[in-house]
């Protein structure tokens, strides 16, 4: 990845900022950074349907908007369905000659809560219907941040949140992170990928592939949230990188059902490197960390074997 920086970075990317300055995300919010890069890759001809959550709130306090592209927010659990309606509306209006023919991508977006919990049904419906030029992006910061860091089904095992606090009788979140990418893959859609706010070029490349696949496509973007993870804001990029380098959050894509690992990691770092320093994990014991290490290794190996069998 780093070799990209040997050249002048702004030349490698769309310079238009369609998510403008003046948005009110916290200092060091890598979810906002991920949105910025997703928009760079998507370009101009899109319509965004955004679920309720941090990115919606920080960007749209009436009468202000941080969006330079068409954008709609309706409710928390329905971005998949709203984006379906947008896709269907644009399609039929073009077919009936009421608006000019042009490829416009309908992009649904939401946080992990909006995607893996309350909006899962609406998203599943949307993916199943096979809308063309349809992309859904989950910005996963691993909790309901907008409402004050409550757990979601995407919160990792062991993380303390305000509704999964660590305590005498609790390790914090006691369920394993829901594998949302696998659920998307099960819909048999042409493109699914995981990405991370610390790898903007990889993220942008995947957005472009997702769009080129024709859709529906699903991207699951680990988006580091310093506020909710209880890390200093300047370490937002570092922790995303550690998530990938430890195998906690593997980067891969699934094109027409074929898995391919997309980050070159010769040897995984121990999960301890990732867990330590994050306030949400500070209570974990060595035994807890061992349990997490075993699980991460097992899941990572599964992906590696899928990668190997799919890529001969």
């Amino acid at each position: 990845m780093i070799d990209k920086y040997a050249v002048f970075v702004p030349n490698l990317t769309n310079r238009a900022e369609n998510f403008t300055s003046g948005h009110r995300a916290c200092q060091g919010c890598a979810e906002a950074l991920a949105v910025r890069h997703v928009l760079k890759a998507l370009g101009h001809d899109i319509v965004i349907s955004n679920a309720t959550g941090c990115m919606e709130i920080v960007s749209s306090p009436l009468p202000l908007t941080a969006w330079n592209v068409p954008w709609i927010h309706v409710t928390f659990e329905n971005a998949g369905a709203v984006a379906s309606g947008v896709a269907a509306g644009l399609k039929v209006l073009m077919r009936k000659g009421k608006i000019p023919e042009k490829r416009i991508v309908s992009v649904g977006m939401g946080g992990d809560g909006a995607t893996t919990d309350i909006g899962l049904q609406a998203l599943s419906g949307a993916l199943e219907r096979m809308h063309k030029d349809f992309l859904y992006v989950c910005f996963d910061n691993e909790a309901y941040m907008n409402t004050g860091i409550q757990r979601s089904s995407s919160t990792p095992y062991g993380a303390a949140t305000t509704t999964s606090p660590a305590g005498k009788d609790s390790i914090g979140q006691h369920t394993w992170k829901k594998n949302m990418a696998a659920i998307a893959v099960a819909h048999d859609i042409p493109y699914v990928a995981t990405a991370c706010s610390s790898y903007p070029f990889d993220l942008q490349a995947k957005v472009i592939k997702a769009v080129e696949s024709g859709g529906p496509a699903y991207l699951h973007v680990l988006s580091v949230c310093p506020t909710g993870w209880r890390i200093p804001s300047h370490l937002a990029i570092k922790y995303g990188r550690l998530a990938v380098e430890t195998g906690v959050f593997p980067l891969y894509e699934v094109q027409d059902g074929k898995y391919r690992m997309t980050a070159d990691i010769p040897k995984l770092r121990p999960v301890r490197d990732y867990l330590s320093g994050q306030g949400r994990f500070r209570h974990l014991t060595d035994t807890d960390i061992d349990i997490i290490q075993k699980r991460v290794t097992k899941e990572y190996d599964k992906l590696i074997s899928l990668h190997k069998s799919n890529n001969g």
Partner: peptide, 17 residues
């Protein structure tokens, strides 16, 4: 897949014109 999504999709299509 539900009435919730029915009205949500209606919102999207109506907003699209």
């Amino acid at each position: 897949e539900s009435e919730h999504s029915a009205m949500s999709a209606c919102a999207g299509s109506s907003a699209a014109g």
